[in-house]
């Protein structure tokens, strides 16, 4: 009984999320976190440090290549691309944040409830989830846009339409794996109500997988939003949303590639940052991958 056994994996799992040291050991996760922080700073202070207006045309400097005056060059209206990117960060990233958070807030209770109650309720809800997720992500988004019309607000709605079932499915999966554990049974035996078990005991232990999914969902939401912007279904020109900037700049790919390079790099970096952090968190939470 007293043999020095290693700690059970459950304990290790719960500590992992708050273990900053473990996170710092993963170089890619740290790089991702740095990118995320830079992006956040740009969202907060971008317009303040932008050297030019994002919208006022300057016809004397149309399609100027990158220079000291315009670090990322100018577009077909002579607008400074760096300034537009700094302003547009709010739109491109906000869509990701809002879409992913709203999906988590709506999808998590559904996943928890289906796992906990099971039965016909679970069957029906999960069947609906299967049906919605039978439409490949961006195609569902385009379908919803076809109904609602283009616009940034509708892009957020499409992301939520796809994100909620995704969260419900993942939270349900994780919740099923813990709902028969002894401490849940103990709570029930101790007279805890259903809602107390769900929120106090189960939700707390699912914070890890939910955080991972939230981070990856943000990456995905930014990709979908920029793709919709590029297709002309999201933010409309002259809004400096990054995907919409690429749609405008597409015509100048042959003569002024910088118009297309920099907004794309920003989308790529934002998505990369969230993916790296999500991946790092995922590895930390999964003891099997620690080798």
């Amino acid at each position: 009984m007293t043999s020095p056994q290693p700690a059970p994996p459950q304990l290790e799992r719960r500590q992992a999320l708050v273990d900053v040291r473990l996170f710092m050991q993963r170089r890619s996760a740290v790089v991702g976190a740095v990118i995320m922080i830079v992006m956040l700073l740009v969202v907060l202070f971008g317009p303040l440090i932008a050297p030019y207006s994002p919208s006022i045309p300057d016809y004397a400097h149309i399609l100027a290549p990158p220079s000291l005056k315009h670090l990322m060059g100018t577009d077909e209206f002579g607008r400074d691309i760096l300034s537009r990117i700094l302003w547009g960060a709010r739109l491109s990233l906000a869509v990701g944040f809002i879409g992913a958070f709203a999906s988590a807030i709506l999808g998590t209770p559904i996943g928890l409830a289906t796992a906990y109650y099971g039965g016909w309720f679970d069957d029906i809800v999960m069947r609906i989830v299967d049906i919605i997720l039978s439409f490949p992500g961006i195609l569902l988004a385009i379908g919803v846009i076809a109904i609602l019309g283009p616009g940034l607000q509708n892009v957020i709605i499409t992301i939520i339409v796809f994100g909620v079932p995704m969260f419900a499915r993942i939270v349900r999966g994780s919740a099923i794996s813990i709902k028969d554990l002894e401490y849940i049974e103990a709570a029930r035996a101790g007279g805890a109500t259903n809602s107390r078990i769900l929120y106090q005991h189960m939700l707390r232990n699912l914070v890890g997988p939910i955080t991972v999914q939230l981070t990856l969902q943000m990456a995905n939401a930014i990709l979908v939003a920029s793709s919709l912007g590029f297709l002309g279904f999201g933010a409309q020109p002259p809004t400096p949303e990054w995907g919409a900037m690429l749609a405008e700049g597409r015509m100048f790919l042959t003569i002024a590639p910088w118009v297309d390079i920099f907004p794309g790099v920003c989308i790529f970096l934002a998505v990369l940052g969230f993916n790296m952090v999500g991946d790092g968190l995922n590895d930390m939470l999964d003891p099997r991958l620690r080798r």
Binding site: A219, L223, S226, S227, F230, G243, L246, D260, G264, I267, F268, V271, L272, N275
Partner: peptide
């Protein structure tokens, strides 16, 4: 590779 927007 998983972070590239395909259109870009």
């Amino acid at each position: 590779g998983v972070s590239f927007p395909a259109f870009w």
